[in-house]
Design a protein around this nucleic acid. Structure first.
Length: 464
RNA sequence: GUUCCCAUCGUCUAGCCGGCCUAGGACAACGGCCUUUCACGCCGUCGACGGGGGUUCAAAUCCCCCUGGGAACGCCA
């Protein structure tokens, strides 16, 4: 088997979105699975809309996702000479011709065709005129008038189009720049790309590209078109659906493993398995299990996966990842303290931003702690406050001030008083946390420390 | 409009070279267990082969039609 070469070819007109990210992941996986090469090409031939900052952003997202590429980045913008060389070759071999029709004229032809219920296309007016170069002229492909254009698709099987459906597409614009389809073919061929896995929206480009390959006498790669990702409402993914660039998911506190895992499972499966480590994906990914029907994006499942990976991440690393989010909440917390906090909250959050939010009550001063009025009314009754006050004295004696000791102090208090834990747990909790939910009491007190714990208990006595 | 693609629970999907499917798993929802609480975890419930024709002893699985969705029809990528 020849070496597999795949590529991802984003155009730097925006950030990397999840659809593109999935395509990138699939190509990366295909190359890595077969020990092949994964190339990255920036399709910046549209000088107007292409921005360097987007290239940078796309690269940053690729790295964040853990997708490394082989060799240097390829910029289409720097390869115009190569494209023009191939276009000249087609001109020489009679596979292309000069055309002087203006965009308006061509639009007129399309309009006419549409009115007649036909496929809008260029009518081939200049095909046999034998025109040479000249201002305002473009080069068009002399496409076959009849026959079928057939290609094998890794996900859809055999796909065929009537050649009559295709028109003489422009290869070189009036300004001398090559068009997308020409550039893609020349690039893929010269880069040695063997497998072109891309979005569904390119299926109808494929026969056009096949024609160019044939005109150039170049071998065809294997094509594969993965269905698009739909929004949760089954409609095309759009801004309305909230975050969609991978950078936004990063900012929302998602872990890259979760996004990768989720995206891969959207359109690909391996039996009933849901969780895949990156290395496992490399081992198991092949093109045969790609799904051919479009998939709707499900934020809930993404969060579930993220929560899973949150619990898998080592504490120190999780603390490091959470730091920026805690900072965004307005707190400057030492790494060691964050590492002590994280184990109490990792199971109570599904992403890093959540985590920072949910541990907020641990970071404020006793004086600034907010108490949920309903919880106060329910638990900090006269009896509740009495227990809190009694506990304050006992807890002050705890030595060492650690989880085990603290637990014993509270336990003994309940035992000796002939009480039920339900009588002292809730008031103590509201005093410490301000609400009725959260981590275990002993661990909260341990991380809070003696002074802060006592301060909170004192403050609770004054509440209500 | 034309062409191409797609069609299993609300969602992601397994199954699809026909029988092992009274259709399996996961997310969500709901209920329970665990637990001082919340969460995690565990157990369970609800829930789908779009419709119609064929082929066959037998169809979610093969064929055709319909319907429904999507994409593309640029001197954008």
């Amino acid at each position: 088997m020849t070496k597999v070469v795949t590529r991802f070819a984003p155009s730097p007109t925006g950030h990397l979105h999840i659809g593109g990210a999935r395509t990138a992941i699939f190509n990366w996986l295909l190359a890595r699975h077969f020990g092949g090469t994964f190339l990255l090409r920036i399709e910046d031939t549209d000088q107007e809309r292409s921005l360097q900052e987007y290239t940078d952003s796309i690269l940053a997202s690729m790295r964040w996702l853990g997708l490394d590429w082989d060799g240097d980045l390829i910029y289409q913008g720097r390869r115009f000479d190569i494209y023009n060389g191939y276009i000249d070759r087609m001109l020489e071999t009679g596979h292309a011709y000069w055309c002087e029709c203006t965009p308006d004229e061509v639009e007129q032809m399309r309009e006419t065709a549409r009115e007649r219920g036909l496929k809008p296309k260029y009518d081939g007016r200049c095909r046999e005129r034998g025109l040479g170069p000249g201002p305002g002229r473009v080069v068009r492909l002399k496409a076959p008038l009849a026959g079928r254009v057939v290609f094998e698709d890794m996900v859809k099987g055999t796909v065929a189009f009537d050649a009559a459906e295709l028109d003489d597409m422009v290869l070189r614009r009036a300004d001398g720049a090559p068009t997308y389809n020409l550039a893609v073919v020349v690039d893929d061929a010269t880069m040695g790309v063997t497998h072109v896995l891309r979005g569904d929206d390119h299926v109808s480009n494929t026969p056009k590209q096949v024609l160019i390959y044939q005109a150039l006498g170049l071998p065809l790669p294997v094509f594969g078109h993965v269905p698009m990702i739909l929004g949760p409402d089954k409609k095309k993914l759009s801004k309305r659906h909230g975050a969609r660039a991978v950078i936004e998911y990063e900012q929302d506190g998602l872990l890259p493993q979760a996004l990768v895992n989720y995206l891969v499972r959207l359109g690909w499966s391996y039996g009933d398995q849901e969780i895949f480590a990156l290395q496992e994906l490399v081992e198991k990914f092949t093109t045969d299990n790609l799904n051919s029907s479009p998939a709707a994006f499900d934020p809930d499942k993404l969060q579930w996966l993220n929560a899973h990976y949150l619990r898998e991440t080592p504490v120190d690393e999780l603390a490091r990842l959470t730091a920026p989010f805690v900072k965004a909440e307005g707190f400057d917390v030492a790494p060691e303290r964050l590492a002590a906090l994280v184990p109490l909250f990792r199971e109570r959050a599904s992403n890093l931003a959540d985590m920072a939010r949910v541990m907020r009550f641990m970071l404020v001063d006793a004086a600034a702690l907010e108490h949920d009025p309903a919880a106060v009314a329910k638990a900090l009754t006269a009896e509740g406050k009495a227990h809190v006050a009694a506990l304050r004295g006992l807890l002050d004696q705890a030595d060492p001030f650690d989880k085990a000791t603290l637990e014993k102090v509270v336990h003994d208090y309940v035992e000796q008083g002939g009480l039920k834990f339900k009588q002292v747990g809730p008031p103590l909790r509201v005093a410490l946390a301000g609400s009725l939910g959260g981590p275990g009491l002993p661990e909260i007190m341990e991380v809070l420390g003696r002074a802060e714990t006592l301060a909170r208990l004192d403050r609770a006595a004054a509440l209500g």
